[in-house]
């Protein structure tokens, strides 16, 4: 063959194609290693585990009343390569409740709105159902309203697909309040830990 002359022989065309494929394969194999390594590097966040639901002592029962208050959960943060002790890893609403048998208990809620992750606050807002101004959990981003026991005030119009995320909490004999702190997946009706 010479320059400019079309390759007409079909056998030759096929061989040429095969060689091109082999060459492309060799090149791809050579590039594959750094791409694979890089992808594993980049996907590392998916391998890491989140909060395991560790229990924290936040306060004592004497400090609580029926109105929820926000308490900081403090732990060592492992942020990439940094280990920083005594950092706030999240906040929890705590309120004192009286159980049916008359004993004193505690209710704990995440401060993160299950709808889109804004921080819920305790606020005076007009209840659309009763028309009364009430103390409730109110999300300033999209106006979600939750009663002080965490239920959506109007599930039909609420943006959030589920109630405010409650957390496991207990009070020990000495009145210390312990909460199992977790974060949950946002936006869905099911409360599943992340």
């Amino acid at each position: 063959m010479s320059s400019g002359k079309e390759i007409t022989n079909s056998n030759e065309t096929r061989r040429s194609f095969c060689r091109t494929v082999v060459a492309a394969g060799a090149g791809a194999a050579a590039v594959a290693l750094p791409i694979y390594g890089g992808a594993r590097m980049a996907l590392y966040p998916l391998q890491q585990e989140g909060l395991s639901g560790k229990e924290y002592q936040l306060t004592t029962i004497d400090n609580l009343d029926a109105t929820p208050r926000s308490y900081a959960v403090v732990d060592t943060i492992h942020d990439a390569w940094v280990s920083a002790p005594n950092q706030t890893i999240g906040n929890v609403f705590l309120r004192k409740v009286t159980n049916e048998d008359g004993s004193v208990g505690v209710e704990a809620f995440q401060t993160v709105c299950p709808h889109a992750g804004c921080r819920v606050k305790v606020d005076q807002q007009k209840n659309p159902k009763t028309g009364q101004v009430e103390t409730m959990f109110y999300c300033p981003c999209h106006g979600d309203m939750f009663s002080l026991s965490g239920q959506r005030i109007d599930p039909d119009t609420s943006k959030s697909a589920r109630d405010l995320d409650s957390l496991e909490a207990r009070v020990d004999e000495d009145g210390r309040v312990f909460v199992k702190f977790q974060n949950f997946q946002l936006g869905c009706a099911d409360k599943s830990p992340v």
Partner: peptide
């Protein structure tokens, strides 16, 4: 050179090999 040939024949194979050798 005056004489030329298609790259997509033996040359492409050698080029692929060059990448593998470099790697």
């Amino acid at each position: 050179a005056v004489e030329r040939k298609s790259f997509w024949n033996w040359d492409v194979l050698w080029a692929g090999l060059a990448c593998v050798v470099t790697m």
